[in-house]
Simulated scan of single mutants.
Amino acid sequence: MTYQFKAALLVVIVVGVAGTAYTFSAGGNSGCVATGSSATNIWRVDASAVGDSDAIQAAIDAAAGQGGGIVQLSAGQFNIHRPLWLKDNVALSGSGLATVLKASARFLDSKGPHGGHPIVTTEGADDVTIADLTADQSGDVLDGNVDGRLNEYLIDVRHSVNALVVGVATKNPFTYSIAVVGSSNFCVRDSSTVADSSGKYNQLDGIHVTDSHSGAVVGNRVDQRRGDDGDDGLVAQTIGAEVYDVIYRDNDVRGGSHGAGMQLAVSGHQIRNITIENNRFWGSPSGIRTGYYDGGTQSVHDIAVLGNTFFHNDGASVTFKGDLENIRVVGNSICRSGAIKVGEGAGNTVEDNQQHC
């Protein structure tokens, strides 16, 4: 069944009875296990001269009330006045990057479930998809330095199982751009982030995975260094739980001036069983590194750094220190980047890496 919502009018019109199968999958050999929503019924929301987040949320709620559905957005700009909250088995899909969810002048007047300002949150929802759209947090025109700024993030996958983010571009962040928090069986692929502000914000990470497991970050383009405010490009971080069984593959990454291409950030729990493979880390203060926060001394183990390219990074290509075990740095290519530094630990291997331009 297909439904249509006119933005700003909140009118529901049944325009058909035969649902069109429209599914998302990770596909290929990406390592993604997430498939997102399996729903086929479609709720259409068309942008008007003044796009309205209320119409999108109404469609999400209506789809969830029917056991799930695809909220299909037209091309055009939707002015987002408050965070959009996905529900179980709902896909929020644009019509490509010409579909823009843009934080409006009223956006900071409302908060997400954790007191932050996400454009989209999946808080507590399973089997969800966010696809084929641009999300603009308007950090260039809004003053995002508000209470709770880092409580939630621009695209916020949180406390979800089987969440898929695919074909999403983020712009003008004042938080992390795409974050996965306390979730499992997730996939972030074929998406892009950019941080281009200077002197306005801090901690502008690209794709940030916290307290999550069994997922993949693949085929993304991350550039946190167009301005001076950007931080790490990719992150695996532990605060309240381990991060494990996550693949980072085929990403093109430039870390920001305040970070690295990728950081394994330890604070409270160990990081283990991480594969970092066939990525390009370039133009960053450093390539891949470990970091320890809030007294964290937990181990980092069973990490594979395989077949990556490190190009024109200011500092070391790889730096692993702390309590390490089974760190394998093998078959990487280094061009005008610093050395590979891996501390002592049982099973640690550094071999077949080449200086090659």
Rank of each mutant, 00 (worst) to 15 (best):
S212Y: 00
R106H: 02
G227R: 08
G219I: 03
T40C: 10
Q263T: 14
D250E: 11
L108F: 06
G219R: 00
K102H: 05
N220W: 10
R158L: 12
N278D: 15
L92F: 06
V15K: 15
D252S: 10
G36W: 08
A49C: 05
T23E: 13
S214D: 12
V168Y: 06
S104N: 01
R280M: 15
N172P: 12
L10S: 12
E242W: 03
G338T: 11
C335K: 00
N79Q: 11
N326K: 07
G283K: 13
G215M: 01
G331Q: 03
A163F: 04
Q57N: 04
N273I: 05
D245I: 07
A236M: 09
H81S: 06
Q137V: 10
I288N: 10
R158C: 11
S267Y: 10
A339D: 07
V300M: 05
E325S: 14
N185F: 08
S183M: 03
T309L: 14
I130A: 04
G343V: 01
G307Y: 01
S197H: 02
L154Q: 14
P118M: 07
T122F: 02
V235H: 04
I119M: 06
L154T: 15
I276P: 08
G19A: 15
I334D: 00
S286M: 14
L92H: 00
I334F: 05
V128Y: 03
I276Y: 08
V218S: 00
W43Y: 15
A63Q: 09
V180L: 06
I178F: 07
I56A: 05
Q72A: 13
E123F: 12
V329G: 04
S184Q: 11
G256N: 11
Y201H: 04
G139H: 10
I274R: 12
V141K: 15
A7M: 06
V168D: 05
L108H: 04
A75P: 00
A346K: 05
S197R: 00
S337K: 00
S197P: 01
E277K: 12
G315Y: 08
I56Q: 05
S267P: 11
E277S: 14
G233A: 01
R254N: 06
T238Y: 02
G31T: 13
I80R: 02
F174Y: 15
V128G: 01
A135W: 07
V120D: 00
D88H: 04
W43E: 14
S53K: 09
G36P: 13
S95Q: 09
G69W: 11
A58I: 07
